[in-house]
Amino acid sequence: MRAGHYAGAFFFLFFGASTASATNPGFLPGDCCFLTNLTQEKVKDLQNSNSPTFSYKVPDPLSMAFCGYSGYWRLEIPDMPQAQRAALKAAYESAREFQPRELTELKDSETGRLEVIESNPLRVLVVNRDFDFKRYGVLGKYNEAWPKESLAGAGGFFGGGSGSTPARSYVPIVQNAEIVIQEWYHGSEVAPLAVELPAPLEATVGGKPVLQPAKAKKPLRFIVLPERFESYVKPEDGTSLYVVDDDVVEYRYHPGDRWLKAADWEKKQDGVEEHLRAVDAQPKSPPSGW
């Protein structure tokens, strides 16, 4: 961990991470994950596309500024295995058993037509297949190059024609100092997402997002989160996520053992219930003094 990272951590703790930078950053070189959403419509589209494209979704849409864009906003998975596309569908359907779809009507500002959208999409992290989510969690970008890539260029940290507003400030997945410090501390241990970029980072800075997709260099992994990002800061017992390679594996959080496969978590719960039943079945001693 570089000394500059300690300075960055201090800056976050003292001032807070910026959620309204002079440019809205998408996926940046060095990020270990590409953030996207999964809806019923997207699941259907996946089954008919051999090389699907996913759109980058900022963690908090309300934080978007009106000062242009930087980074990359599309990710293509060339020749995505049909088994993995089917596994994503299975993960979505399983998650919806506990988190049903919520639909909202929105009026198109240009046509005036009402559109029905899925207002609670599942959050997804696209990561390398060797990414160890049990060790590093699911809320960090682990971008070792962030001070160089995110703050250099486009006017530098205090540039961009916006006075003291960062040209490309750090935008975390969640506003949590401990997680940001963990990102900086372990940044050198986590490999960047294996993608081929369509253009140099400097060429992505402008008034519109770059829609030419980055392309995966090798098979990637999808981590599907049924709950809001904030629920994974300090997960409660039973909080779930799905890991999708060419099949889907559900994990649940257990305070003592962290992330367990769902079947192992259920065994833990059964063991607790058996213990409680055994305690209840024991003869009750009369109160003292009888």
Rank of each mutant, 00 (worst) to 15 (best):
P78K: 14
D79F: 04
Y56G: 04
F54P: 06
S55E: 15
A86T: 07
D60V: 13
L46Y: 06
F66G: 11
A83T: 06
P59T: 13
D60R: 12
P81K: 01
N48Y: 14
S49Y: 10
L38H: 06
Q82R: 14
S55N: 14
Y72L: 01
E76Q: 13
L46G: 01
P78Y: 15
L38F: 03
L62A: 13
P59K: 11
S55L: 15
S49D: 11
P81T: 03
E41D: 09
P61V: 11
S63I: 02
Y56P: 01
K42A: 11
E76V: 04
P61N: 13
P61G: 10
P81D: 05
G71T: 01
K42Q: 13
R74E: 14
M80Q: 09
E41A: 14
N48P: 06
F54L: 08
S70H: 00
T39H: 06
V58S: 08
A87W: 04
N48S: 14
S63R: 10
K42I: 07
A87I: 06
T53V: 14
M80R: 02
T53I: 12
R74W: 10
K57V: 15
E76R: 12
W73I: 00
E76W: 03
S49Q: 15
T39N: 04
E76Y: 08
P59W: 14
Q82M: 13
A83V: 00
A83I: 04
A65L: 07
E41G: 10
P81E: 05
D79H: 09
M80L: 11
S55A: 15
P81A: 04
S63E: 07
G68F: 00
S70M: 08
L46K: 02
K57D: 11
P52I: 00
R74H: 09
R74L: 06
P52E: 03
Q47D: 12
P52D: 02
S49A: 10
V58C: 05
G71I: 00
D60S: 08
F66V: 07
L75G: 00
M64Q: 13
K42F: 11
V58R: 09
T39F: 08
T53N: 04
W73K: 05
V58I: 13
E41W: 12
W73G: 04
S70F: 00
L46W: 03
Q84R: 04
Y56N: 03
Q47L: 09
F66L: 09
P59H: 14
E76M: 10
N50G: 15
Y72G: 02
P81F: 01
D45I: 09
E76N: 08
N48E: 15
Q84L: 00
I77Y: 10
G71D: 01
V58M: 08
